[in-house]
Nucleic acid binder design. Structure first.
Length: 151
DNA sequence: GCCAACGTTGGC
DNA sequence: GCCAACGTTGGC
């Protein structure tokens, strides 16, 4: 059982959108390391939903992988901002899982607070800020959930 | 809006 | 295969 962190700009797609839709595909990832993480996700695994380029940026809640990665259709669409002319249906480059809504935290846990929390020093979020799909360790998962639950 | 970090592209 | 130029991300 692995844990993950998925970033999204809430002005484009927030945890409230996922709550409303309940399930959605996680399309638009165009970075190889992020893609590799998407492909490593297994049904039932959990991920933090992170709001980037937000005021403030931070972790908004939790979602669950409900379908393992399959080809991201937006790569084939010339009209899409995610179009990739080098991708073909026979040889897709980009993949997306489906994620389901689990919960929205009572309060968003801001990045500034995560930075000050002991035990999170090695999180990708705090060291590799541009990676949009990250792995989270068991310990980090527990620490952040404890904060979210006010423990 | 600025800019640091860093991933990608393409000429050689 | 190197590396300069360029583009993007995302916090501030």
């Amino acid at each position: 059982m692995a844990y993950w962190l998925l970033k999204s700009e809430p002005s484009t797609y927030s945890i409230d959108h996922l709550k409303e839709n309940q399930v959605d595909h996680w399309d638009g990832v165009r970075n190889y390391q992020a893609r590799n993480n998407l492909q490593a996700m297994r049904v039932g695994e959990l991920a933090f939903f992170y709001h980037s380029s937000a005021e403030p940026p931070g972790i908004a809640g939790v979602c669950r992988i409900v379908r393992e990665a399959y080809p991201d259709h937006t790569q084939f669409d010339p009209e899409s901002t995610y179009h990739d002319p080098k991708a073909t249906v026979e040889k897709p480059r980009w993949f997306m899982p489906d994620v389901g809504f689990v919960r929205k935290f009572d309060r968003l846990i801001p990045l500034s607070e995560l930075r000050q929390t002991p035990g999170l020093e090695n999180m990708d979020l705090l060291n590799r800020s541009r990676l949009s799909v990250q792995k989270v360790s068991d310990e980090e998962w527990e620490i952040i959930n404890a904060i979210a639950e006010g423990r």
